[in-house]
């Protein structure tokens, strides 16, 4: 439609102004112009009610003393923000969030591509294997957390007992910061690797097979084919997976909250992520003002990372064009 109207516009300019059109004609014009917007408006109305309004309202709450039960209190300006940024909890939680995010996203993408490549090979019982990798995704995250937090128990956990068998000292999976991040990242990876592998697999199967034929005629081995044909052809899919796992990674909550009995992210905040800190401030401590300030900061962080993602994506796609 936009194509036709742009085509028509120059001729409109040269012609004398159109004759007066009846109401009906005008209506049908509006119809043509407005209907598409009306059709897509439910999404935006819904977005406004459930997305934009809470977003703005959170900013409003962040400027007040706000108790979970008693509601709005005094206007305090930026105090909630200075409290949050001035305390050690926020920075620690930020570090934890990024650490868990990197420990989960990077190995996840690499494993997912590898698994997808294996599934792409000529296997017997293809569907069985493909459904198999999706199985962990079906398990509820709560159940996953319960199982893993027992596996990773510091004193009597299965993993430490097994390490003991081969003579390695037990690791403080809950006590130490980095091991707790690895344990939580393991849960995340357990859940999402198979899912991402299937997306990669779908993209791999869309790669024209003659590319591989040509490559093998040129004498490229399987590994070379994978690196020089498969990976470059998967670029858009890799970008998609990286973006979705970034958003998910910055909002890690379930796995970390259920990692111990209290759900506060450890006695020393070893695995307290930003979302857990937000929850603790808002619900456990009843300080909604401060929780909202954290929410606003988290939003800004995600926006910044989104922008970085966007720039990197543009860089990659323009690099592709140049080739």
């Amino acid at each position: 439609m936009s194509a036709t109207s742009t085509l028509r516009r120059p001729t409109d300019a040269t012609e004398p102004p159109p004759k007066r059109i009846g109401f009906g004609g005008r209506l049908s014009r509006w119809d043509l112009r407005l209907s598409p917007y009306l059709y897509i408006s439910p999404f935006f109305i819904l977005f406004f009610v459930t997305g934009l309004f809470p977003l703005v309202y959170t900013g409003w709450v962040a400027l007040h003393d706000w108790d979970l039960i008693m509601g709005q209190g005094e206007f305090v300006g930026a105090k909630n923000f200075t409290d949050v940024l001035g305390g050690r909890d926020f920075w620690k939680a930020l570090g934890n969030t990024f650490s868990i995010f990197l420990l989960s996203s990077v190995p996840q993408v690499i494993c997912a591509i590898t698994i997808a490549a294996l599934l792409d090979a000529n296997l017997r019982a293809k569907t069985f294997w493909r459904m198999g990798v999706l199985l962990p995704y079906v398990v509820a995250p709560v159940a996953v957390s319960l199982i893993f937090s027992n596996l990773f128990a510091d004193k009597y956990g299965l993993i430490n007992s097994m390490l003991g068998l081969v003579g390695i000292d037990p690791i403080g999976w809950h006590a130490q910061r980095l091991p707790s991040h690895i344990a939580i990242a393991t849960m995340v990876n357990f859940r999402w690797t198979g899912y991402n592998a299937l997306i990669f697999l779908a993209a791999m199967q869309a790669i024209p097979r003659d590319l591989y034929e040509q490559a093998s005629i040129d004498g490229a081995g399987k590994v070379r084919q994978f690196l020089s044909v498969t990976i470059p052809m998967l670029r858009p899919t890799i970008i998609f997976i990286v973006i979705t796992s970034t958003i998910g990674g910055l909002q890690i909550f379930d796995e970390a909250r259920l990692y111990d009995q209290f759900g506060r992210g450890g006695a020393d905040g070893q695995w307290q992520t930003l979302t857990i800190l937000l929850y603790e401030q808002g619900w456990t401590r009843s300080n909604f003002g401060r929780a909202s300030a954290i929410a606003v900061l988290l939003f800004l962080i995600i926006v910044v990372i989104g922008l970085i993602n966007f720039l990197v994506t543009r860089l990659i796609s323009s690099a592709e064009v140049k080739r």
Partner: peptide, 13 residues
Amino acid sequence: AGLGQWSADWNDG
């Protein structure tokens, strides 16, 4: 025994 009360370790303890 260094078992955080109510933890999985505490129960196993």
